[in-house]
Simulated scan of single mutants.
Amino acid sequence: MSRMPVLSRKKLGIAAACAAALAGTLLVPATASADPIAPPTHAGVDYQIGGAYTPPEGVQIVIRDHGASPAAGLYNVCYVNTFQAQPGAESEWDADLLLRDASGNIVYDTEWKEALLDIRSAEKRERIMAKVGPWIDGCRDHGFQAIEPDNYDSYLRSGGLLSTTDAQEFIKLQSARAHNDGLAIGQKNTAELAANRVANGLDFAVSEECGQYVECGDYTAAFGDNVIVIEYTDTGLADACAGWGDMLSIVQRDVQVSPAGSPEYVRQTC
């Protein structure tokens, strides 16, 4: 049974204000002819989707919101919320692309107040991709090397309206778009589908709290050492480091993934 991650649903564009001042020089954009390259393994990583800042010494991988600029000289992963609408952004989607229950009410991810997208048919998935696809292209154009599509596990919050098949059919469209753009694509959480990563076109994994919830082995069984681990507690970090510190890329952040200099900022590694 999959848990609900503490932090898998953050606002798109939240890093934009910080990005202009802190992001640095853009990298050369990937091209459609380039083969996607997965992130380096057992590498220093920083999770900056709450706001961009200068990466700490030793960091090789940075994950930032798609509204931010990449960090110069590092491997950059572009965070994109693709399975749910942003809070308050329902009007940006055609009404029938928002998942609705039997009474016609929009189904929400109640923790983050995000409307779930209706990915139940091929026709609707293609229409959603008409918006999501350009976001992925934008990650390429900004110079990112990979994307991290969030809320792959939205079916767990759908009241049974969405299925694992729906999720996988939609992630395949994103994988194809990313690979055509020369970008690697990561599986976000959703350990129960990790075994299908090849069929779904996924190159690496980003797991929140697999140390805390004893799930890291579920990801390594499918992705080997191509796993980035984000922990939010001291216990989770300790357990992840004890079991996987010599193999995986592991970092602890504060739950709000605050920029450096914020009172809430936390960043620890093994």
Results as ranks from 00 to 15, higher is better:
218 D>T: 10
42 H>A: 15
169 E>T: 06
201 G>S: 08
40 P>R: 04
115 A>H: 01
37 I>G: 05
40 P>A: 05
39 P>Q: 09
219 Y>W: 11
219 Y>P: 11
263 P>N: 11
184 A>S: 13
266 V>S: 03
114 E>M: 12
92 E>N: 15
155 Y>C: 03
149 P>A: 05
83 F>R: 07
64 R>L: 11
109 D>W: 00
179 H>M: 08
146 A>E: 03
9 R>G: 09
145 Q>W: 04
14 I>D: 00
161 L>F: 05
220 T>G: 14
205 A>C: 14
192 E>H: 10
142 H>C: 11
38 A>S: 12
134 P>T: 11
200 N>Y: 00
259 P>N: 12
47 Y>M: 15
19 A>L: 05
61 I>K: 00
114 E>Q: 11
180 N>F: 09
181 D>K: 06
253 R>Y: 03
44 G>P: 00
268 Q>D: 13
220 T>M: 15
180 N>G: 09
146 A>N: 06
132 V>W: 03
206 V>D: 04
47 Y>S: 07
202 L>H: 08
233 T>M: 04
79 Y>L: 10
98 L>I: 10
32 A>W: 08
200 N>D: 12
97 L>Y: 06
117 L>M: 02
94 D>E: 14
87 P>W: 02
51 G>E: 02
153 D>Y: 00
115 A>I: 01
44 G>K: 01
187 Q>M: 10
47 Y>P: 00
68 A>G: 07
135 W>M: 08
54 T>K: 07
84 Q>R: 08
137 D>H: 11
8 S>P: 05
121 S>A: 07
117 L>K: 01
73 G>Y: 01
169 E>G: 02
221 A>V: 14
146 A>L: 03
202 L>P: 10
263 P>D: 14
203 D>N: 11
5 P>Y: 02
102 A>R: 14
232 Y>F: 14
29 P>E: 05
135 W>E: 07
136 I>Q: 01
58 G>R: 01
200 N>W: 01
207 S>D: 13
